[in-house]
Design a protein around this nucleic acid. Sequence first.
DNA 1: TTAATGTGCAACTGTAAAGTTGCATTTCGG
DNA 2: CCGAAATGCAACTTTACAGTTGCACATTAA
Lengths: 122, 122
Amino acid sequence: MPRSRTRTGARRKTGLRASLCHAAPIFAALGDGTRVRLIATLCAGGALSTAQLTAGAAITRQAVTKHLHVLADAGLVRDVKQGRERRWQFEPSRIEEARRSLDAISQQWDQALSRLKKFVEA
Amino acid sequence: MPRSRTRTGARRKTGLRASLCHAAPIFAALGDGTRVRLIATLCAGGALSTAQLTAGAAITRQAVTKHLHVLADAGLVRDVKQGRERRWQFEPSRIEEARRSLDAISQQWDQALSRLKKFVEA
DNA sequence: TTAATGTGCAACTGTAAAGTTGCATTTCGG
DNA sequence: CCGAAATGCAACTTTACAGTTGCACATTAA
């Protein structure tokens, strides 16, 4: 979990901006229908081969392979070679990271609203 | 919140796949450093003008405008015309939607893990 | 060994996105 | 009214991406 340190050594939470910029590649990887479908399939638990993942996809195996590489580069998926085939499995850590980023946004927004409310009431 | 109905009329939660496909455009909008920075700025609560948002951005005002339109199309931002300027404000509902999608992924994954554990123990 | 299955790699096409420049338009202030 | 500030719109360049095709390589099964 990314953290920074102030000059005095005091610990503080990483800024929203930095956190979000770090998560942007994850969101980009999730921002495609085909890839999001692959994730939905893989997070059911199985470690499926490229051919198996291509089965329901209406596009070429090579296209699926490219999408899987995009997901792998974003750290959302891991690949394991097994004999002549290559199985892909879901990797949950980056998703958690993205989730925390969205939580941070909501939190920031809620704080802004409560500040506004306090200001109006004063 | 999207829901589907079975033939018998029983209510059930929307499938992970459909939920994620619906959220893909949101993720796509968040998958860019400039846009994510804009969101981080706007969710602090202020309703800022295009010029104000361009100030720290190292790119042209027109480029910022385009990004804001992308965010608006994804429903992440709303614009309000005020005289000669146009102020942009954060719109939290879609972020919540994306958040629920990520939660659903994590949940699905956890369920898969517990099924696996139960299987191993048996 | 042979044929079939599962992949990997490279080249190529078409399209969309990011960013720019130039100019017209609306609006506020003096 | 006039100039400056804030935008809007359109054309254009560059680059990235989704998808395809064609072919070579590895591996398993008969």
